[in-house]
Amino acid sequence: MDPAKKLEVIKQVERDSVEEMKAYQVQQTKMGDNEDREQMAAQAKGLPFWRLMKELTMLGYFTSEDGIKSSFEYVPIPGKLEMIQMKPNQKSFAY
């Protein structure tokens, strides 16, 4: 398969899972002292393949030591809380 075709196939898989996800009626909820939680009506059926793989890939990479340190400004002990302005090319802080 040529690269353009491959890309189109992946995009189609993505479009399909967006459609599939509609049945899950996903809701972002907040619990108690701010625990965020995703509520889904149809969770028991399991997530669509694309959505699950994407979530796990992103989670796995962005919480790995290399992933965090190369992607973000990793500040495990901020020591202070400040409202600041974005710098040019500002990376997300990871804690």
């Binding site: 972002q28 909820t29 907040k30 901020p78 202070k80 809380l81 600041i84 974005m86 802080f93 804690y95």
Partner: peptide, 25 residues
């Protein structure tokens, strides 16, 4: 009783950011 409220996206404030994780709301 809890687990009831609302969420939204906020337009603007693109240049505002926070250093540190506020353990508070």
């Amino acid at each position: 009783h809890l687990g009831v409220g609302a969420n939204a996206t906020v337009e603007g404030f693109e240049n505002d950011y926070v250093f540190g994780q506020r353990p508070n709301a």
